[in-house]
Amino acid sequence: MRAVISVVGKDQVGILAKVANKCLEFDVNIEDVSQTILQDMFTMIMIVKWTTSQEDFVAFSEHMQNYGKEYNLSIHVMHEDIFNAMHLI
């Protein structure tokens, strides 16, 4: 299954590296990354592929949210289906 990791927060050194390292740690494959900086605000959208269990995914999602808080970043990991349902017919 695929998921979307979104990262929003004040720009700082190493955001991409931090998130990418976590993906490695949890065995999550990064398929696409895009990022922009608007008025000092960093926004990154990462499309990742997930191959292990649903429980692990939930654990990863919770871990990332808490990890983001440590660095004042808002990190969300969400199943891609939610976006497809809302925005694609």
């Binding site: 929003v8 926004t43 959208i45 891609e80 497809n84 809302m86 925005h87 694609l88």
Partner: peptide, 9 residues
Amino acid sequence: INNNKILET
């Protein structure tokens, strides 16, 4: 989906 839609959600 494009990034704007993701951020909108």
